[in-house]
Design a binder for these strands. Structure first.
Lengths: 173, 173, 173, 173
DNA sequence: GATGAATGAGTTTTCATTCAT
DNA sequence: TATGAATGAAAACTCATTCAT
């Protein structure tokens, strides 16, 4: 990947996340990236190709984030680290994550498969801890974690730290 | 509101919810509504005016949904009915709700104030039931309910009925 | 057909015939027609739609030209009028015809069916006049007439009048 | 001429003949030739330079084809071999010839001078054979031969062999 | 109230050409 | 000689909006 290619990518991430995919023009991306508009098309074929590349990257980041949790054997730790996930997002990555959430709504067929491995790990963890409905607990927690992430990104949460402790207590982890 | 005006509105709701606001052209709306393109502008001034009208309607529907819960005095019932909210959405209204969720991401300042009254009611309910952190519990539940709605609209929930019972049990309501 | 629509069409005819279809930009057409570029697309969908409309018109003109010949019962007159065809083209229509010839080469599937009725008439005429291979004579003459048209449009013919007489003599009509 | 140069040339010939000169992009040529886009410009200066080279080659091929006819002293043989010309084109050379015909229409001043020597030979042949208007006969035959070539390249001729015999008979050669 | 022709600015995309390596 | 990244201008096409009827 050339330097300009990266500039395009990062400009696109910022703009897509700020304005949404279809409200962002390729000319705006080119300007922000400091490259000619044509270059976007040379490297990514078309506007959608650029988006796809960003999505692909996003999927890899998610995978990398989930990996250590999935590898974890201690069930309590699996739950604990899952809860901690949304609180660990750094402010400098907010743009990136906002984009991922936005795309979930903007794209027709945005894959929701990324979380499957985590769901399996959580189900197993809840089972080991003797929960009555481990599958539902896992599904429940994942939905919640995603919603929490959304709330954090939008600054809707009154007190992040407190909410985190509250949740860890709730699950006794 | 004339018949054509309604047709415009309902076509716009469907298209906005399917493709998003900025990916939907006024000409597509006019075609879907079976009216001339000019008419949209006669009635709603511009594309954004049409959107605002839809948002206004949405807010009213939300208010109407929350009203009976807020009026409820029995704290257990407040929680119960809050949990039941996302499960009561009729399939024929999915388009409408999908649009509301989409707009949350597409619009810069889509109001999140709509849920404030419910938050107050829930806080009070949790307090009455002796919960240790009623504010956090209320915030938590609202975030969860919204996430659940999202999951239901996207057909991500494996077993709606079971999840509902699971939640009611969890809150002992 | 509105006035502007006609202006677009006639500007397109001139420019396509002068520069060829793919070397003519829609913006050049719009400028020449004195309309906005967008109007071309509103009326004809896309550049090719505009071309198709021109082709359709061309086919009608050809049909109209051939009609009186096909209706002719006197075999000698059928041949005579066929030969005269290319010599009757008015200079003001050269643009139009040049375009038709150009398109034969520029379009993948330009229909050559237009001449079929004339071929049938000619075959019958040659048969009535006792020619030995009427089908070949008809095919031969049509190819020749088209080539002659081409030569005339390109001003390659040294002496049109003389050539016409020469041909009429050759066929004894 | 290097190997890559030849590849460019032959790719260009094919593409120009299939799509026309202005509808063929240099990038398409480069891709088809398996070379970098820059190389075209290194070797031929610009797109037109490439075209000119192709035209030059075409003119040489035409010259070479006409040479033996022009050298022919027997008038009957001059006519005979002229008639046979379009029937001798090998199918593998169709692309090449299609391109020559296409260019006649696409280029403003595509030279029609190539046939001049043949016209002189034919005029002289017809004169020797006592034809009344040898100049017209020569002009007539050349126009016809070109049209025949066109028809053959487009597969419009019902029966090539028969047409050839028919023509040879017509001219009694 | 309703139509649909028309616009102009903007969008995505293409393309011939240059240039550093 | 050869590559391929990069450009800038122009191409095709879209779209919100206006306006005469």
């Amino acid at each position: 990947m050339t330097e300009k290619q990266e500039k395009i990518l990062s400009a696109a991430k910022i703009l897509f996340s700020e304005r949404g995919y279809s409200s962002t023009s390729t000319s705006a991306i080119a300007k922000a990236a400091g490259v000619s508009e044509g270059l976007i098309f040379r490297h990514y074929g078309n506007k959608e190709g650029l988006l796809l590349e960003i999505i692909r990257e996003g999927e890899e980041v998610v995978k990398a984030m989930l990996f250590p949790i999935i590898m974890e054997s201690d069930p309590k730790k699996v739950i604990k680290r899952t809860i901690e996930l949304p609180f660990e997002v750094r402010e400098e990555d907010y743009d990136f994550w906002r984009l991922q959430f936005k795309l979930k709504w903007e794209l027709k067929n945005y894959s929701h498969e990324k979380m499957k491995p985590l769901e399996i790990s959580l189900t197993s963890a809840f089972k080991q801890l003797g929960y009555r409905s481990p599958e539902l607990e896992a599904e429940y927690l994942i939905i919640y974690i995603e919603a929490l992430g959304e709330a954090i990104l939008k600054n809707l949460l009154h007190d992040k730290q407190n909410m985190k402790l509250f949740l860890l207590q709730k699950y006794n982890v």
